[in-house]
Design a protein around this nucleic acid. Sequence first.
DNA 1: TGTACAATTCACATATTCATATTATGTATT
DNA 2: AATACATAATATGAATATGTGAATTGTACA
Lengths: 125, 125
Amino acid sequence: MELTSNPAVKAEKTMGLPVFDTDMCAEDMDRMAANAMKASNFLKAIGHEGRLMILCHLASGEKSVTELEDLLSARQAAVSQQLSRLRLEGLVNPRRDGKAIYYSLADDRAKQIMEVVYDLFCREE
Amino acid sequence: MELTSNPAVKAEKTMGLPVFDTDMCAEDMDRMAANAMKASNFLKAIGHEGRLMILCHLASGEKSVTELEDLLSARQAAVSQQLSRLRLEGLVNPRRDGKAIYYSLADDRAKQIMEVVYDLFCREE
DNA sequence: TGTACAATTCACATATTCATATTATGTATT
DNA sequence: AATACATAATATGAATATGTGAATTGTACA
């Protein structure tokens, strides 16, 4: 696969991914690099044991920070910082209810990745 | 979603992901944490602009280190190190042919993730 | 208003990641 | 064997990420 969204790329091969050889123009390379940067930022955001477990728990419904704190056996400040990162990345949404703040999954991006991750790392054996 | 592979988890909800509430036993939590660690290591490996672009280029066929060096406009040592990381993670395989070493994608894991990443970051707009 | 609780933010120490330079290894060629 | 080339491995410092404790903000309630 490659990371341009240029409609002029070659026809698809075995999978749903576009294919290209060595005939990319500089513009394509730039777009590819830009996309790669966005994508790697996203992957870094979810590439953390604690944050991954948070997303995982949120998939079954919204949770307060203290609930997550218990579920992860982690300190409040740490959980809060991890949530902060996920918030910045637009992956979760906070909702205040009284003293507690409940977090939920924000969009489908995390869900889509998590589904693949689940298949790869939690279903096999 | 959650990261256990316990068959006793609740029925699936909207997506293909299992759901659970607060009734996980310690054993489940351990398995989940172990899976989360494996998964986050994997995500860290591909969550790097250079490595992502390498995987991306390899998706269209095996490439030598010098070819990748040119494609990424990166130094030899850097590319080699990134390949080394991908090798350790089992994502790519080297094949020696004379002086050159050709790398190719090792398994489907990378491809599966990359396909989703491509949809999320290279198709939209 | 004062107190308790939930969550965030800050400042710091530590750990990890990364890029670069340098050195080493393996292969072909002479 | 000697040399050149392609790649790998190692070492070092800079940058980044992470966890911890203390201080801070926001909310509810007496």
